[in-house]
Structures are given as C-alpha cells and as structure tokens.
Amino acid sequence: MTIEQARRQAQSALSTMAEGVSPNSEKKAARVRGVTLGEVFEDYLKARKSLKSGTLADYRKIMNKAFGDWQRKALSDITRDLVPHSSLICG
C-alpha cells in the first residue's frame, strides 16, 4: 500500500465516522451476517461441555437429518418463510 492509498483509506474512514457510523461495528456486522447455522451449532456444542457423548451424537444426528441442507446457510438468510411448521417435527 502506498502512502497515498493509506491517506485515501484514512480519509474514507474519517468521513464514515463523521457520519456517525463506526467502522468497527460495520466489520462486526459483516462477520455476523456470514455466520452459518453449522458454525453456531458447533459453538453451542463446545459451550455445553457437560453433554454426554450419546447426547452429542443424538444432537448431531438430528441436526444432520432435519437441517443438513441449511448448515452452510448464513443465519441471516434463514427466514420464517423458509421454516414450514412441519419441518420442525422430527420423527
């Protein structure tokens, strides 16, 4: 990056902040929009350290069966319209 490019980037960031928008919050929002259902599920399992291996296996089985196609889908892309009531019943 040249000095001139750095100056332009800094000027752009300053003008964004002058408008009341935090560049850090924009970056965080972009990261959050990209979080997938599978990532959240894995984070949930990691946070629940007390789950027994059988429970973990059951959770993974249900997740793969009921939401296998959605695990790579960003949470922000999953809407009410995509979730028919019947798909919530595993059986």
Rank of each mutant, 00 (worst) to 15 (best):
I89W: 06
Y59H: 14
E26N: 11
L51V: 00
A10Q: 03
A57S: 10
V83P: 02
D43Y: 11
S12D: 12
A13S: 05
R33W: 13
S15E: 09
L45F: 10
R48G: 00
S76N: 07
R48L: 04
P84K: 04
K27Q: 12
G34Q: 09
V35D: 01
D58F: 11
E26P: 02
E19C: 02
R31E: 09
Q11H: 08
L82W: 10
T16E: 04
K65Q: 14
A29R: 10
R7L: 05
S15Q: 13
M63G: 03
R8P: 01
A18F: 06
T2L: 14
M17K: 09
N64I: 00
K65L: 10
S86R: 04
Q9M: 09
Q5F: 03
K49Y: 14
T55V: 03
I3K: 15
K28Q: 07
Q71N: 08
Q9K: 13
A66Q: 03
C90Y: 10
Q71T: 07
R48N: 13
W70V: 02
K49N: 14
I89Q: 12
M63T: 12
L51E: 00
T79W: 04
G91D: 08
R72H: 01
S87L: 12
I3V: 13
A18E: 11
N24D: 07
S25V: 01
F41G: 00
I89C: 06
G54F: 03
K61E: 01
L37E: 00
I89V: 12
F41C: 04
F41W: 03
Q11D: 10
K65P: 06
I78G: 04
W70Q: 11
R72Y: 00
E19V: 01
L45A: 09
A74N: 15
W70L: 14
K49I: 13
S76K: 06
F67R: 00
A29P: 05
Q11T: 08
F41T: 00
E39K: 00
R60L: 04
D81T: 04
G68I: 12
V35Q: 08
V40S: 14
K46I: 10
G38M: 01
A10E: 05
A74C: 14
N24P: 02
L45C: 11
S87I: 13
I3P: 15
K52Y: 07
R7N: 10
E4T: 15
G91N: 12
E39T: 04
G91M: 10
T55W: 05
Q9G: 06
S50N: 15
E19I: 01
D77N: 15
G38E: 00
E19S: 08
D77C: 15
K46E: 09
E4K: 15
A29G: 05
I78F: 05
N24L: 13
K46Q: 09
R72T: 00
G68R: 09
L88K: 08
S12Y: 12
L45K: 10
V40H: 11
F67H: 03
A74Y: 06
A74R: 12
V40N: 08
S15G: 02
Q9T: 10
K73R: 14
D58Q: 14
Q9L: 13
N24C: 05
S87V: 09
M1V: 04
R8L: 08
G54T: 09
G54W: 07
R48D: 04
D58C: 06
L14V: 03
R33Y: 11
